[in-house]
């Protein structure tokens, strides 16, 4: 777990490499299943975030998952949002809370009506 401490890399490639090392260590410890799962998602998240950064033209790396989704929806990229949801298995309820919130902020009533 101490490994997770020193991960403030800005360089995404390096970050992912570092995280993978950490993941390997965690995998050896059976009692840490929860943590290693979390780390695994985190690695995937960072990679997706990097992709999305190019698409959406914002900084996303470093944001938590919910925040990433919210940002994405706030930009009006609903398709991407749905993809994120599938990719990270975001529970239905949480997804719609975030989406609802984002749509209200955007005042996108048409999309809201379609929910």
């Amino acid at each position: 777990l101490i490994v997770a401490d020193n991960l403030k890399e800005r360089d995404v490639a390096k970050l992912v490499a570092n995280l993978k090392v950490a993941l390997k260590i965690l995998h050896n410890d059976k009692a840490r299943a929860l943590e290693s799962a979390a780390l695994d998602t985190h690695i995937r998240l960072v990679q997706v975030q990097r992709q999305m950064e190019q698409e959406l033209d914002t900084t996303l790396v470093g944001l938590p998952l919910n925040e990433t989704l919210a940002q994405c929806l706030l930009k009006g990229n609903y398709a991407r949002g749905t993809k994120l949801r599938a990719e990270f298995k975001i529970p239905e309820r949480r997804y719609y809370w975030i989406k609802l919130h984002a749509l209200v902020v955007r005042r996108d009533w048409a999309e809201l009506a379609r929910l």
Binding site: D5, A38, L39, L45, P64, L65, N66, E67, I90, R94
Partner: peptide, 10 residues
């Protein structure tokens, strides 16, 4: 973790 970021595992 999803809401506040991965560092919250710590």
């Amino acid at each position: 973790v999803a809401a506040f970021g991965h560092h919250q595992t710590i």
